[in-house]
Amino acid sequence: MEHTAVLPAEAHETTTGLNHRKVLMWAFLGSDCMLFGSLIGTYLVYRGRYLAGPKPTDVFDIPYTSVSALALLMSSLAMVLALAAIQRGDIRRLKIWLLCVAGLGLVFIGGQVYEFTSFGEEGLNLAVSTFGTTFFVLTGFHGTHVTFGIVWLLMIWIMAKRGQMTQARSLDVEIAGLYWHFVDIVWIIIFTVVYLIPV
């Protein structure tokens, strides 16, 4: 079977029949669980032990954050629709849905920037209290993940625009999608643990 092998290493048969990069992405997501687990754990250790500065209830605007949480949740819908489109070979819809995902991601990030700014105006910052420290670092890490995902999806969109994304490459979209959904489910947890459950 190797005699014909002027093929990329990736296309060789694998032991499990699964693609290397997809296995890698799932391993990464398992690993990332521990990353966010450590950050959420840190947040919860200091939960309620705030000596100075505004308390969570002083600054949180639940309706506002609910809207941006909903935007991120719906971006996951757009993401699966983008994947379904490329799997059908529908590149036109792929591009539309990718833009939707990135757009909703940007709404979320914009919301976070606005939120951080207004919290700052109310006197909450990285250094003022353990709440400021743990809140900004946890949500900042998540925001960085979202931003990275937006860049990734826009790169795929550019490639699709240049005609480089074909049905045969749906796996590229699928893997980016796995990352995106993961970022979404992390926010499902953060939204509940940090915002909704009262201190």
Partner: peptide, 19 residues
Amino acid sequence: HRIFTSMFVVGLVAAAFMI
């Protein structure tokens, strides 16, 4: 494939235990 679920769940369970 089940292997994806197990890879993810291992990380998830370890993180949940730690938290």
